[in-house]
Design a protein around this nucleic acid. Structure first.
Lengths: 190, 190
DNA sequence: GCGAGTCAACCAACTGGATAGTTAGTTGTA
DNA sequence: TACAACTAACTATCCAGTTGGTTGACTCGC
């Protein structure tokens, strides 16, 4: 941690802001706490990011960007994709929380998540025409259902189920199997 | 609106609080705004409900209670149940938002939602043993997947898809069909 | 059927502690 | 010496929760 390194300070602020926003949301986040946890002066936030809200936007942008590259989309294996998303999010519940805060507190400011979604639906549409995926749902809806399965635990895990590795593996299998059934062309055919 | 009617004042406060909390969450809600919109004095909130957080708990409790009675559970028709939940929530997105705020801002205070969930899983387990539902998932997981399908639109509707009645009907059909495929014993058998 | 007493309902104004954002600088480095 | 990085202290505002009451309705003795 060298002194007077702008990039390092910026990075520490972003890390601290991620933790703060994921935990408390925008309204609940405290700028002073972010600065303190980053070991930086509050002023630097306003210099580097403008204000609290813009700081949130930047934190979210980076998180989504990282998430998109971390879990590559695979139209040919939607169940596997659902499983990979599940793995990614269950190890980083903060990402889940951050996206939810965004949904609730900044619904208008739409970032690259919508863009990435659109790219994926195009792939789904092609796969449907090839007969590789169930063709009785719109690409949008099919993809939405698969993603919902991958993220379902977050709603349901309130009581803290999924604590044990066994339980986690069972749930993961249910996610993968659900994605398979939803997208399987055999099932949709009859 | 008769003057000095405690019940009426309490009810107006609860209504105003519901709107305020659904829109802004706990941290973002303003007690003054709630009192003003209820046409009541702020003091009454502290007399009737204790404090802001307890007011939120009461608002949530009533909302969940109403939701549970509004959409009766039917183990024998999970696709229909999923569709009914979808119908209920899509007409009252506030309910969805309120539950999400609770999940993010008050994850520990668990109410009757967990209780209701437990009751439903028991029914699912019986239906699985009868062979009426796919038996290759734990009751918990099966139900979680079905509920996730019903609520999936909330994640995906960021861009404001589902605006037209046609699009809404298509998505609803996808919800029902997904629930069918997930829970269908035929599919799971092979 | 009326005046005194009682209590619940209601309220304007206040308080103390946060809190986002700013000012007016100092310090390290090239 | 020039400039970017950094900082302590401040300001103006907001906001949950409180104080110290007033107002209206109902009761009971007479």
């Amino acid at each position: 941690m060298p002194p007077r390194d702008a990039n390092a300070t910026r990075a520490r602020l972003l890390d601290a802001a991620f933790a703060e926003f994921a935990a408390h949301g925008i309204a609940g986040a405290r700028v002073d706490r972010i600065a303190e946890n980053a070991g930086a002066n509050k002023r630097m936030i306003y210099i580097y990011f403008g204000n609290k809200e813009q700081l949130f936007d930047e934190v979210l942008r980076r998180a989504v960007e990282a998430g998109i590259t971390a879990v590559p989309f695979d139209v040919e294996d939607l169940p596997g994709y659902a499983g990979a998303i599940f793995d990614h999010l269950i190890t980083r519940p903060d990402l889940m929380r951050l996206r939810l805060w965004k949904l609730l507190e900044r619904p208008d400011a739409d970032g690259l998540e919508a863009e990435a979604f659109a790219g994926k639906t195009a792939g789904v549409a092609e796969a449907q025409q090839r007969g590789d995926l169930a063709g009785d749902m719109l690409p949008d809806d099919l993809l939405t259902m698969v993603l919902a399965a991958a993220q379902a635990w977050f709603w349901a895990d309130e009581g803290g189920r999924l604590r044990t590795p066994e339980r986690l593996a069972q749930h993961r299998a249910a996610v993968v199997e659900s994605a398979r059934r939803i997208s399987n062309p055999q099932v949709a055919a009859d």
